[in-house]
Design a protein around this nucleic acid. Structure first.
Length: 520
RNA sequence: GGCGGCAUCGCCAAGUGGCUAAGGCAGUUGAUUGCAAAUCAACCAUCCCCGGUUCGAAUCCGGGCGCCGCCUCCA
C-alpha cells in the first residue's frame, strides 16, 4: 500500500485513485523567460520517478507539466531582447525540454501552454463571475477571496490575516488578498480579446484551467515546489472549487527546494545580477530561484552527466530541502561509479549488457518472479527488494530505496567474488552460476528502473574515444607490451607504463580475464 | 511579527515507540594483487540541549538554542 504525504491534511494517507488504476498528475512547470536552472529540474525528476513507480505498481499515469508562456517577466525580457514574447518563450521551452531529456525525464504526457488555452481561461473566468466569485474592474478581473469560506485551507493561513480591514485597500481590489484572473493589457503588450477588453491571463488561473481541461475537475496528484503553496496553489484551489463545486485535488505533494551555495553561480557562469551594486545577497547562499546566481542548467550539464544529477536529486527524500554543491555531487558521482563498474563486470562475466537485460514488467510480475527464488543469495536479493519497496511505498522514499540498491550491488559483487566467476572456464557450472547472477541482477535492473536510473548506457566522451581505431590499437599494443614485461618480471617497465598512462588520464586495471582500460 | 519545516557518525543521508540506529562519501584493518586499481570482509554514531510521558523514545509531549522556507515573482 502506497502512502502519500498530503500538504492539505498534513498527514500521510493511503494512496487511492478516483477511478481504479488511473492517476492524473499535474506539476507546475516553468515560466519560460530565461534558461532553466537546477531548481527547475528538481520537481520534474522527482515526479518522473513517482510516475515510474506508480506505473510499476500498475497505474496508468497521465502526467502534465504546464508551460507558462505569457507573463510580465516574459514580456519584459523579450522586449529587452528585441524579440517577440512567443519567440522567447519557444526558445526557453526548448531549453527546458532539452534539460529534462538529459535527466531522463520522459514520462510527461503533455506540456500545455497558457497561450493555447486563452479561450478556456476566459470561459472559466466568466463562470466565476457569473457565480459571484469574481468581479471585473477596469479591464482587470479579480477573484474575491472573501467569497470562498475555505480560503487558506491548503497553506494553513487564516483568511483574516490576508483580507484587508474591509474596504478597498489595494487599488481596485475589494480585499487585499484578491488576485488577478485577467490583466488588462497596456499599450504594446501582447493581448487577447476578452469580454473585459484586451488583456492576458493572470498567473494562477492557467493551472486551474489546463488541469481541468486535461485531467478533469478532480484529479489525484498536484505537485510543485514548497514555495508555491501560497499563494499559487491556494489560489488554484479557490478558483477551481468555486468554479466546479467539487474538490480540486486529492493529494497535494510539495517538494523541498534546492538550496545552493554561492559556487553554483560560478559553476553556471557569471552571475547575472553582478550589476546590482551592493547586492551582497546575490553572493550568499540561499534559495536559488531568486536569480541569486543560479547558472543555466545546461552549463551544469556540461560538467556533470544528467544521470549523476538525477541520482543526486533522488538520493534524499523529496520533501527535504537539498543543498547543491560541487563537492556533494562529486561524492554522489563516486558512489554511482560502483554501479557502473558492476555493469561492466556483469558484461565481462555474462557477455550480456546490463542495460539490455529483460526485467519483470511491473510489481506483480516481479512478485511472481521473486517467489521462485531459492538459495541464500537469491533469498537475500528478495529481502533487499522488499526493503526497497517498503521505502518507496512510504511516500516515495527514494533515499531509502537507493540505500537498498547499494546493498544489492554489493551482494551481486560478492556473488561474483565468492564463486570466482571472473575468469572461470566455460562449462555447465558457470552456466548455472551465471543464470543465478542474472536472476539477481534482473531485480537491480527492475528496481532502479522505477527510479528512472540506468535506463541506457551513458554516452561519454571516453566512449567516443574508445571507438577511435587508432586509440584502440595503441592501447592494445601498450597492454600487450606491459603484459610481456610482467611475464618477464620486469615490473619497473610494467609500472612505468601504468603510471604514465595514469598521468594521461587512462586507468589500467588487471583482471582475471586480462587488463581493462578506462578514461576519466 | 504571523504560519510552517528541519536538527541522526568528519561530510551527505534513511529511520517517526521496542531486535545489533540503513546506505553513500571520507578513513582504518584484512583478503586478493608482483605492486596497484577494482571487489569483498571487518571496524568506525546512542541520535542539538533540558524536562516529561512510557516497562521501553532518535522516534510522543513541553520548554530552550540553532538553521531554513513562506507571508512579494519563484520549481
Amino acid at each position: 500500500m502506497i502512502q502519500v504525504y498530503n500538504t492539505l491534511t498534513k498527514t500521510k494517507e493511503a494512496f487511492e485513485t478516483l477511478e481504479p488504476g488511473r492517476v492524473g498528475m499535474y506539476l507546475c512547470g516553468p515560466t519560460v523567460y530565461k534558461p532553466s536552472h537546477i531548481g527547475h529540474m528538481v520537481g520534474p525528476v522527482i515526479f518522473d520517478a513517482i510516475t515510474r513507480y506508480l506505473e510499476y505498481n500498475g497505474y496508468e499515469v497521465r502526467f502534465i507539466v504546464n508551460i507558462t508562456d505569457v507573463d510580465d517577466k516574459i514580456i519584459a525580457e523579450s522586449a529587452a531582447r528585441g524579440m517577440t514574447m512567443a519567440a522567447l518563450a519557444d526558445e526557453m521551452t526548448a531549453d527546458y525540454q532539452a534539460n529534462l531529456a538529459a535527466l531522463g525525464v520522459d514520462t510527461i504526457s503533455a506540456f500545455p501552454k497558457a497561450t493555447e488555452h486563452v479561450g478556456n481561461i476566459i470561459a472559466f473566468i466568466e463562470k466565476l463571475i457569473a457565480q459571484g466569485f469574481a468581479y471585473p474592474a477596469d479591464g482587470d478581473v479579480y477573484f474575491d477571496v472573501s467569497k470562498f469560506a475555505e480560503y487558506g485551507k491548503l497553506s494553513g493561513r487564516s483568511p483574516k490575516d490576508m483580507l484587508g480591514e474591509g474596504g478597498l485597500t489595494a487599488g481596485q481590489k475589494r480585499n487585499l488578498a484578491d488576485f488577478a484572473l485577467w490583466k488588462a493589457a497596456k499599450a504594446g503588450e501582447p493581448a487577447w480579446e476578452s469580454p473585459w477588453g484586451p488583456g492576458r491571463p493572470g498567473w494562477h488561473i492557467e493551472c486551474s484551467v489546463m488541469s481541468q481541461q486535461l485531467l478533469g475537475d478532480t484529479f489525484e496528484i498536484h505537485g510543485g515546489g514548497l514555495d508555491l503553496v501560497f499563494p499559487h496553489h491556494e489560489n488554484e484551489v479557490a478558483q477551481s472549487e468555486c468554479c466546479t463545486g467539487k474538490p480540486y485535488v486529492k493529494y497535494w505533494m510539495h517538494n523541498g527546494l534546492m538550496q545552493a551555495s554561492s559556487e553554483v553561480g560560478k559553476l553556471g557562469g557569471r552571475n547575472t545580477r553582478e550589476a546590482e551594486a551592493g547586492d551582497l545577497a546575490s553572493q550568499e547562499d540561499g534559495k536559488i530561484s531568486k536569480s541569486k546566481g543560479a547558472g543555466a542548467f545546461r552549463e551544469m550539464l556540461a560538467e556533470f552527466p544528467g544521470e549523476t544529477i538525477r541520482f543526486f536529486v533522488l538520493s534524499t527524500h523529496y520533501r527535504r530541502p537539498i543543498d547543491f554543491s560541487t563537492e556533494r555531487i562529486r561524492q554522489v558521482e563516486t558512489g554511482l561509479e560502483t554501479f557502473y563498474r558492476f555493469f561492466k563486470r556483469f558484461q565481462r562475466v555474462t557477455g550480456a549488457s546490463f542495460y539490455a537485460l529483460d526485467y519483470a514488467a511491473g510489481r506483480a510480475a516481479e512478485d511472481a518472479l521473486v517467489a521462485g527464488f531459492a538459495g541464500d543469495f537469491l533469498t537475500w536479493i528478495r529481502e533487499k527488494r522488499t526493503g526497497f519497496l517498503a521505502a518507496m511505498d512510504d511516500d516515495f522514499n527514494t533515499g531509502g530505496g537507493i540505500g537498498e540498491l547499494f546493498e544489492l550491488v554489493r551482494h551481486l559483487n560478492r556473488f561474483v567474488d565468492e564463486n570466482k566467476l571472473e575468469g572461470m572456464a566455460e562449462g555447465p557450472e558457470k552456466v548455472k552460476l551465471v543464470a543465478t547472477l542474472v536472476d539477481g541482477t534482473r531485480i537491480l535492473r527492475g528496481l532502479s528502473a522505477t527510479l528512472g536510473l540506468f535506463q541506457k548506457e551513458a554516452v561519454k566522451a571516453e566512449d567516443a574515444a574508445a571507438e577511435d581505431l587508432l586509440v584502440q590499437g595503441l592501447m592494445t599494443l601498450l597492454i600487450e607490451l606491459r603484459a610481456n614485461a610482467k611475464k618477464a618480471k620486469d615490473f619497473a617497465t610494467a609500472d612505468a607504463i601504468r603510471n604514465q598512462l595514469k598521468e594521461l588520464g587512462v586507468t589500467l586495471e588487471d583482471r582475471p580475464g586480462g587488463t581493462e582500460w578506462s578514461r576519466g
